[in-house]
Design a protein around this nucleic acid. Structure first.
Length: 422
RNA sequence: GGAGACGUCGCAUAGUUCGGCCUAGUGCACCACCCUGCUAAGGUGGAGAGGGGUUUAAACUCCUCCGUGGGUUCAAAUCCCACCGUCUCCGCCA
C-alpha cells in the first residue's frame, strides 16, 4: 500500500513510477477520485452519526409524549444513518482496492522498462575456464552421488529431487556458513512457519499478480510460503517497533515452496528451478530514511557470501517493470554458470520501503510520539540453487569438485569431493 | 476430534445480572512537573490506536475501536448468531 499522503500531495511522482514499470498511470487519477469520494462519504456519515448519538441521549432522558415523539424521530434517522454508513464503507473499500493496486513508487535511479532493461552495477571475479569439457551440475551430481533427480521425480513428480550423501551435507554446510555470517552481523536467527494465513500472504504482496505461483491448502485455508520473507514480515505485523535504536534484523531458515506455474519447460534440467528448496533469508525492519543504506549493506553481505564460495558474479539493478509490486528497488546477484555460459540469479534483495509495512501495520514511534510505518527489506543469503554454481565452478577433470576454502570447516575439513564409483 | 471456561485501552482488573448516568473506572508500569538532602515515600498533571474536519503547525473538534465479522435496537462492552484464539480436562498422536 502506497502512502495516501504522497498520492494527494505528489500524484505525478506515482504516475512517473507507474510508467517506468509499464503499469497504468491512469490508476493514479482513479485513486485520487476514490479518495475524494471516500472522504466526503466519511464526513457525511459521521456527521449524521453524531446527530443520532445526541438524539439517542435525549430519548433516554425524555418522558411520556416527548419520548414517543423523539423516538419516532430517532427511528426515522436510524435508517439514514445505516445507509450513509454503508456508503462510507463502500467508498472506503473502493479506495482500498484501487490504491492497493498501485505498486510501490520506485526509487530514483531504478532503470525503467522490462526484464531486459536491467543495469549491471559490477562484475566480480573471473569466470571459470576449463581445459576439458565441463560437466553440468546434473552430471556432476550423479557422479558424486550428491543429487538424485530420477528418484525425486519418482516420489514427487517433476521438479523434485533428493539431495543425497555429500549433496545433503553440502547444502547444510552452505546454510550453516550463511547462518554464521548472519549471526556475525547481529541477525537473530528464526526458523519460520512455512504455512501461513491468507491475510499474511496478502499483506506481504504474494497474492497479487503471482498468486498462481503459490501452493494453497483449501482444507485448512493456509498457504505454503515460497520464501520465509512472508513469515518474517508477518512476525511483527500489527506491532509498534523500536527501530530508532537501530535496525531489527532477522535471518529466517526455511524450506520454500513454489508452483513454478508459469515456467513450463524452463530450466527443466537439474535443480535450478524446483518446487521445493531451502533458503536462508535476511529480513530487516528499519527507519524509512535508513532503508537505502540498509539495502547496500544487504548486498554487501550477499557479495561476501558469494566471494566466500569463490564464485564469479555480477550485481544488477533490476528494471522497474521486473520488480514485484512491493519493491521500490531490487538488486539481484547472478553467478556465472559455466555450462550454461550465462549468469543465473542466486540472490535477490528488495527494498520495500514502507509499502509492505503499511499493509501489515508495522510501525515505529517518531520523535514527536506519533506512529509511522517502518521500512522493510529482504535478501537471500543462501539457497539450494547455489549448489549448481558451486559444483560447476569448482569441478575438475575427473569429476571431482574442489571445496571452497571457507566452506571446508562446515564439511569436516573436506577439501575435495570425489566421485563415487559403483 | 469431544466437553467446559474465557477473550475489556502496555500489564492486571472493574463493568456484562436487568442495553442508555461507559465520554470504558481503578491499580501497576510510563512521562512531565512539584515536594523531599540523600536509588525511597508523597503530591499535581499527562498519557491508547485508527480515521474525518480545520490548520503552515500546534491547539481544537467529530467518528470508530471492549478477539473478528454479522444481527437485533432509537441506542450494544452488555442481547443473539457465526468464526478466530487462549486455558482446563478427555481422546488421538510424532
Amino acid at each position: 500500500m502506497i502512502d495516501p499522503q504522497l498520492l494527494r500531495e505528489n500524484p505525478e511522482a506515482i504516475r512517473t513510477s507507474q510508467r517506468a514499470r509499464g503499469a497504468s498511470a491512469d490508476l493514479v487519477d482513479a485513486a485520487l477520485g476514490a479518495d475524494i469520494r471516500r472522504r466526503s462519504a466519511i464526513s457525511e456519515s459521521e456527521a449524521l452519526r453524531a446527530t443520532q448519538k445526541s438524539l439517542g441521549k435525549k430519548v433516554a432522558q425524555a418522558q411520556g409524549d416527548d419520548k414517543a415523539a423523539l423516538l419516532a424521530q430517532a427511528q426515522e434517522l436510524a435508517g439514514r444513518v445505516k445507509q450513509l454508513a454503508q456508503e462510507a464503507t463502500d467508498a472506503e473499500a473502493e479506495f482500498t482496492l484501487i490504491v492497493g493496486s498501485l505498486a510501490n513508487p520506485i526509487i530514483e535511479g531504478v532503470p525503467a522498462g522490462g526484464e531486459e532493461n536491467f543495469v549491471t552495477l559490477r562484475e566480480v571475479g573471473s569466470k571459470a575456464t576449463f581445459d576439458f569439457e565441463p560437466r553440468d551440475h546434473v552430471e556432476l551430481g550423479e557422479m558424486l552421488k550428491a543429487i538424485d533427480v530420477t528418484r525425486g521425480v519418482k516420489v514427487s513428480g517433476s521438479r523434485f529431487y533428493f539431495l543425497t550423501g555429500i549433496g545433503a551435507r553440502l547444502e547444510l554446510a552452505l546454510m550453516n556458513m550463511a547462518l554464521d555470517k548472519a549471526l556475525a552481523e547481529g541477525f537473530t536467527p528464526l526458523i519460520t512457519p512455512t504455512l501461513v494465513r491468507p491475510e499474511i500472504m496478502r499483506g506481504t504482496g504474494f497474492l497479487g499478480e503471482h498468486a498462481d505461483e503459490v501452493y494453497y491448502l483449501p482444507a485448512d485455508d493456509l498457504y505454503l510460503t515460497g520464501t520465509s520473507e512472508v513469515a518474517l514480515a508477518g512476525f511483527h505485523s500489527d506491532e509498534i517497533l523500536d527501530v530508532a535504536a537501530g535496525p531489527m534484523r532477522y535471518a529466517g531458515w526455511s524450506t520454500c515452496y513454489r508452483r513454478e506455474a508459469g515456467s513450463a519447460g524452463k530450466d527443466n534440467r537439474g535443480i535450478l528451478r524446483v518446487h521445493q528448496f531451502n533458503k536462508l533469508e535476511m529480513f530487516t525492519y528499519v527507519l524509512p530514511e535508513e532503508a537505502e543504506a540498509e539495502h547496500d549493506r544487504l548486498v554487501a553481505w550477499q557479495e561476501a557470501m558469494l566471494q566466500a564460495c569463490e564464485l564469479s558474479y555480477r550485481v544488477i539493478d533490476v528494471a522497474a517493470g521486473d520488480l514485484g509490486s512491493s519493491a521500490a528497488r531490487k538488486y539481484d546477484i547472478e553467478a556465472w554458470v559455466p555450462t550454461q555460459g550465462a549468469y543465473r540469479e542466486l540472490t535477490s534483495t528488495s527494498n520495500c520501503t514502507t509499502y509492505q509495512a503499511r499493509r501489515l501495520d508495522i510501525r515505529y514511534r517518531t520523535e514527536s510520539g506519533k506512529t509511522a510505518p517502518v521500512a522493510t527489506l529482504n535478501g537471500t543469503l543462501a539457497t539450494t540453487r547455489w549448489l549448481v554454481a558451486i559444483l560447476e565452478t569448482h569441478q575438475q577433470e575427473d569429476g571431482s569438485v574442489r571445496v571452497p576454502v571457507a566452506l571446508r570447516p562446515y564439511l569436516g575439513g573436506l577439501e575435495v569431493i570425489e566421485p563415487v564409483r559403483r
